[in-house]
Design a protein around this nucleic acid. Sequence first.
DNA 1: TCGATGCATGAAAGCGCTGTCACAACGCGC
DNA 2: GCGCGTTGTGACAGCGCTTTCATGCATCGA
Lengths: 363, 363
Amino acid sequence: MADVAERAGVSTSTVSRTLRGLSTVSPEVRARVEKAAREIDFAVSRQAASLVTGRTGTVAVMVPTLNSWFTGSALSSLAPLLRAAGMQLNVYEIPDLAERTAFFEHLPARRNADALLVFSFDLTEEETARLDDLGMPVIYVSQHVDGRPSVYVDDVAGALHGTRHLLNLGHRRIAFVTTEGASGFTFSSNERLLGYQQALTEAGVPPDDDLVVSTRTGSKRAAAEALGTLLSLREPPTAVFAEQDEVAVALVWNLRRTQIAVPERVSVLGFDDQPLADWFDLSTVAQSPSEMARLAGELALKLIDDSDGDHERHIVLPTHVIPRGSTAPVAAGSTASVAAGATASAATAAAREDQSAAGSASE
Amino acid sequence: MADVAERAGVSTSTVSRTLRGLSTVSPEVRARVEKAAREIDFAVSRQAASLVTGRTGTVAVMVPTLNSWFTGSALSSLAPLLRAAGMQLNVYEIPDLAERTAFFEHLPARRNADALLVFSFDLTEEETARLDDLGMPVIYVSQHVDGRPSVYVDDVAGALHGTRHLLNLGHRRIAFVTTEGASGFTFSSNERLLGYQQALTEAGVPPDDDLVVSTRTGSKRAAAEALGTLLSLREPPTAVFAEQDEVAVALVWNLRRTQIAVPERVSVLGFDDQPLADWFDLSTVAQSPSEMARLAGELALKLIDDSDGDHERHIVLPTHVIPRGSTAPVAAGSTASVAAGATASAATAAAREDQSAAGSASE
DNA sequence: TCGATGCATGAAAGCGCTGTCACAACGCGC
DNA sequence: GCGCGTTGTGACAGCGCTTTCATGCATCGA
């Protein structure tokens, strides 16, 4: 910087002022400084600047994995936002418990970022408390944390509407497939199950624990097992609602393989609306990680500028039922009970209505 | 840090030495300092440290998009590596030309990272030259840049082996579908086309420009158009080799929809081996972005420590043909020419051989 | 017993900026 | 013509560390 100052025949103070765009620099001096800076290809060191300003010009994000549709589209919408604000993006991938412990042990983000976005982890009270002491705004994304800024999707409502859609199609035996071991998504998982149960309750369909099964994500085999459990029930389901698209697609894949027609014999509904859903013509409940990340990013920028300001700190996003080809009215002669079959034709009309209303199916 | 020093009754020098793990600190003092640091939850500021050491403890990566299978799995393997080395990961997403111009204009990575990994861009000479002046190691990933450290896959060989596999199955009319507009992948694209042509040449199959068509990625519609072009040729292909899995899957999707049996009537081969390929039972030429990123990351760490050292600066990774259900021996009565049909049965045996050899099909 | 040696520690300079304060120059009103 | 506010600029302290150099002390061989 001293070099630039010398070249331009001014002090380093003036160089600093010029390069930060402060208005108290006369046009001619500004021009001279900018020219000098360009000539020697000078760029201010963020490190040095942040040492005195206390601001790092960096936003840190903590994600369970970088290799997922969810994280990918979230970061992809966050990045341009931060770039436009002149902020860097620092990524901490915390795939497992060991890494997480290490992270909270060392809190590497401390003093190295101006804000932290925490993506879908199920943090303990203690961990959340540690983050509170970090001395920077912490925004929780895709999860609701009491009293802290969070941006998340209304999972309960999503599952509620999804299940309603199936009910409106005449289904009464509706299974729900949860996913275990997907680190960092337990929160959504519980909420979605809740929504499913609520919908059944409001429709007067008695809950049946046998219809709620669990599987692992990313495994066709595990999906086959879950499916096997359901198909060997005394009264097998006519519809299956999977907590995640990936599982739903695995179910469709296994069903097709077994010649069990989807949706004629079994309807399958997913949750997420990731690209795979479109490829498999899967009906699903859509959420938008990119929208979520955008809002979280904007909130972060606001809180950095003015952390006590009057900002909306709880942003709840809607979900949308997207009917595609994997859900259909329950078949008359299906494995569903006679009573359910009787309501099926009536439900078909309702189903049509449900579909057109689906676009606004959210809170 | 002064607080820690006071608490431990030592100087800041000693605190610094202790916290950096230097050996010249007596065990008892070390214990005292560590205790004090823990008590007040102290962590050194990278900013301040880097100001004097000149090292930022950060590796920057420049990616065309964060929302892709390729980048996701690459970063996902890079992250733990850097974490283990105590390095931060800084991401610059440069989705379009405007951002790229801005990036090279300001070179924000300058002085803010110890190394830069450039993922699959097609940089101009001028841009590469600017990166040379960055004052840090720059590693090119998934692309070959003369004279600079690069880690990439042998695209020519990959496409060569892929095409050979189809030839060995008896196919003679083999189409090649390129992808346009996929910013940052032109390099691979050209190489793959080259491998395809080489295989045809070595097999004595005359090249036919009509068999090379172009499409956009991520669009079923665009794939349908490309397919339409091929299917309305005088002599339509019996096999289609797509430069990317995503396009290959779109082709399979459209073919199935039109009741054209895959692989009975048309074989389809992809390139990448992304998860989608498995879902669609797509035969493909596999590459491993995670392996590539791992090696690039290791190289980066080496070059940071010792940039003049004797390191292998050009790492070429092999590809592997993965035969799945979308490729099969050419059918006797297929639309292929009679001559091709005659060689088909003989080729079937060769095909089997080809498949078992596929695992090592690489340079 | 004494100087030489090695080791643990402290004092202090300085990394590259920003921000405060002081100051000079200038215009303006009375 | 003088004081006053305004505007543009420079000097300098200091952000939180690392690192060099100096120092004190214990150890050791002669």
